[in-house]
Amino acid sequence: MDLHKFGIKFFAVDGQRIDILKLIPLYHRWIQHNALQELLIDVADYSHVPAGPGVMLIAHEGNYALDETGHERGVVYYSKRRLSGELPERFARVAQRALTAARLMSADAELDGTLNVPGNRLQFFANDRLLAPNTDAAYAELEPAFKAFLERLYSGAPYRLARETDPRERLSVTVQADTEAPLETLLARLS
């Protein structure tokens, strides 16, 4: 499957402790200082919407957010444009971007250490129902590449998968790995 539009969210622990409005100046600073290796455009504030996309950083190739969907906060990146490489490579690239953002946020003085992303729980979602609807067949097509990516990310450690069951929702899978690893380690495995 030639999937390009998808995202990965790394869940935070105790995410409700974060003052989400502090992300607005933080993202603006990232834009000012080119903190991420892509074209950053603007900040979109949806903090007034409960369980929504939170505060977003709009980039050219994809969007970053401290997403609040399902009342579970987590750092998400999803790609909007074509990605190069094979599918496992694309998964790795999107995960790298989310992890990089999570690492920067966790270390930012503005958030005062309130963001804790252990990296051992993530959600993958295909953001393209035309190509990848939430069906067994579509998942079966993606599964080998996805598992290859997880193998790399968790370095062979065991994990459990749970798929979204509502066929109207996006094809998505939540992954819980048995062991935690620092974000730097996860990033190193993907680099």
């Binding site: 007034h48 369980a51 929504g52 969907t69 399902g70 109207r168 929702e169």
Partner: peptide, 12 residues
């Protein structure tokens, strides 16, 4: 809807 906004999940 605060500020006229609704999320995709909510709308579905």
């Amino acid at each position: 809807l605060p500020l006229g906004d609704i999320t995709s999940w909510q709308l579905r």
